[in-house]
């Protein structure tokens, strides 16, 4: 390479790095106070934007991004911490929005953004793009949405292999909790090509199912999860009942582990793919007509 061309190339590289650095400088800084917001911040924001994430994000039992999250200082969502970090944006849950120190944040020009929850794939795309716009990463949001759409399409195409549109699947937590239409679990079940059995049993949104109803109208498949909060002795009594154990022995069971920390946002596609893999393993082990 001629020496002059090399010098021009180096200059261009330096200029582009400088421009990128300048862009990062202009991007709003972020403190996230909620596990789902943490995971969105890590997937949408530039690393330099993130000042702090919630302490839960560093707990491998709750967060899938525990290792990445450990690169940032943890917070417990207190006002003092927020004021000390002085971010441009605080990502929070709806409950946190009612923080009594809200006025102080307004005075310090700290904007609180409530992370939106999605109950349909369309809402996932809209909400992801909206949040990406808010944190100044429109292009990143667009890329992420295209990636999720591609993966969703691939999953739907693989339904022909999974081939269970006529089969029902019941999402069941240890406390009898389940989810009907209008929940992110319903989106996962739909993406996997199953009928949501909780909806068939008349459940809309989140709620609880009685063991009697499950015994009387059992699903074709079970989807179990071991949410940390549900595993206490009293709450998990339904899951220990011999009758449910008997049903679980008689029906194929998919498991959504408790340490996966899926939220009602684009990460649902990860959960759907994770379960599709389990389905494939199950089909290979037992035959398609299980």
């Amino acid at each position: 390479m001629p020496r002059g061309l090399l010098q021009i190339s180096l200059l261009c590289c330096l200029l582009s790095v400088g421009a990128a650095a300048g862009q990062t400088d202009r991007l709003p800084t972020i403190v996230s106070t909620h596990l789902c917001a943490d995971q969105l911040a890590l997937s949408l924001a530039a690393p330099e934007q993130i000042i702090s994430l919630s302490y839960k994000s560093q707990d491998p039992k709750r967060s899938r991004y525990a290792v990445s999250a450990q690169a940032y200082p943890a917070n417990r969502g207190s006002s003092e911490e927020i004021i000390q970090f002085k971010p441009n944006i605080v990502l929070a849950s709806r409950r946190w929005k009612n923080h009594p120190q809200q006025q102080q944040f307004d005075m310090l020009d700290i904007r609180v953004i409530v992370v939106p929850l999605s109950n349909s794939w369309q809402e996932v795309f809209v909400n992801t793009q909206w949040l990406a716009d808010q944190v100044g990463r429109t292009e990143r949001g667009h890329t992420l949405i295209l990636e999720v759409q591609r993966r969703l399409q691939a999953l739907r195409e693989s339904e022909s292999m999974l081939g269970k549109p006529e089969k029902s699947l019941l999402y069941l937590r240890p406390n009898g909790g389940s989810s009907g239409e209008g929940t992110y679990i319903d989106m996962i079940i739909e993406a996997l090509g199953f009928r949501n059995h909780a909806s068939t049993l008349g459940l809309k949104g989140w709620g609880q199912l009685a063991l009697e109803n499950i015994v009387m109208y059992p699903p074709d498949y079970f989807l179990l999860t071991g949410h940390v909060r549900d595993n206490t002795h009293g709450k998990s009594r339904l899951s220990r009942h011999p009758l449910l154990q008997e049903l679980l022995d008689q029906h194929p069971v998919l498991i959504l582990p408790s340490d996966t920390g899926y939220c009602a946002d684009w990460q649902i596609i990860d959960a759907a793919e994770y379960l599709a893999e389990q389905m494939i393993v199950m089909i290979l082990a037992n035959g398609k007509d299980q």
Binding site: R237, R240, P242, L243
Partner: peptide, 23 residues
């Protein structure tokens, strides 16, 4: 240790016959 544990203890102290088995 956690609100879930408090709830578990309180609910247990309030008594219940739900989902009991022959065991």
């Amino acid at each position: 240790p956690s609100p879930a544990d408090v709830q578990d203890m309180v609910l247990w102290l309030l008594g219940s016959l739900n989902y009991r088995s022959f065991n």
